[in-house]
Design a binder for these strands. Sequence first.
DNA 1: GGTTTTATGTTGACAATGTTAACATTTAAT
DNA 2: ATTAAATGTTAACATTGTCAACATAAAACC
Lengths: 202, 202
Amino acid sequence: MKEKRTSPYHHGNLKEALLQTALEIIDAQGLDAITLRDLTQRLGTSRTAVYRHFANKEALILGVIEKGYEQLNLLFTPIFQDRTHSVAERFETMGRAYLDFAIEHPNLYRLLFGEKFRQEREEICDYKDETQATGLYALIGLLLEAQEEGIIAKVNPIVQAAMVWASIHGLASLLIDGHLMMSDNMEAIYEYSIEVLLKGLR
Amino acid sequence: MKEKRTSPYHHGNLKEALLQTALEIIDAQGLDAITLRDLTQRLGTSRTAVYRHFANKEALILGVIEKGYEQLNLLFTPIFQDRTHSVAERFETMGRAYLDFAIEHPNLYRLLFGEKFRQEREEICDYKDETQATGLYALIGLLLEAQEEGIIAKVNPIVQAAMVWASIHGLASLLIDGHLMMSDNMEAIYEYSIEVLLKGLR
DNA sequence: GGTTTTATGTTGACAATGTTAACATTTAAT
DNA sequence: ATTAAATGTTAACATTGTCAACATAAAACC
């Protein structure tokens, strides 16, 4: 009883290793590229070892999604908590960090904000609300701050947050999915977007 | 020589039937749901009949994508050509039509504006530019009109169009992929988005 | 018209993949 | 020490995309 619980023995917490490696594979090659055989081979176990820790492939992916949300949360939280900058500055920094994440981890971004397993995802969101993990929660807080400062109109902040998130998410999606044939203009487009948003929200 | 070309004989233009049925399957059940065996079975042919008309499954899907763009074009063109309404009105109508299409055909929308086959897609876009099929081309025209009327600022319309498209695309994506936990508020969010955009673009 | 060539369709087979069942082994519980 | 539970392995199967070999209908050619 030296370990708290689920103490490893054969592989040394294979479950966590599966999640981590799966996340790395997906991040590098995309969701469709992952196969249980490849995954288990990398870890030196047999193909079906997965089934001792996950019901099936889908359950594993859901675990990766949850893990991804956690990582994203870890990445965004410090940005929001930085009170040394103005609301407008934080607004811009936030959007840029979001875009950067999408650009640096397009496959992971698609997994987290894509369509796959919408139904099943809800089980995760029950106790770890996507709203929070996404940063949408923090965005709402930021918008409320901006409302107090009189920078933007006092409208339902949830509606505002949805609109802002959609704008940045749309930009990220179109970019990483190759639908904006002007990646060189990206910086200009982003800055203009922030400008339009801040002006339009007034 | 009664038929112009590619006159059918066995199945009666199987190629077109494959594209049409494939599109219907994808529209109804999504890209991942389509299998060549199911597809061919519906048409009463054998599994490998596809390979007489397409190099492989991917080539077939690319054909469906092209067909989808055409349909989308047919849907959007009349809206843009309607000069009986003001620029602002057409702007709003356009966005709504775009959103409606995404909501009514989420699987098709994901296929047309998703990540799959980005590389290979470019071959299609050579002679049938996505920019045109998307309606982005028409959007730029609308924005130029708005600029002339002094409704919005005279900025690079391509940048403006990217920003606007991203906003609406983001809204559509988040909605159909189940990331906006307020589908009831959708109408309010959309109207507010148009409001913010028109105000911000000034 | 008859022959050849081409276009189109079919059958059988194979590799990759997710999955299950049966068996094996290591750790934990009693 | 024995039993039970957890974890891992092997063999096998169904599904799917794909290819090779074969079959047939249409078109082309003389």
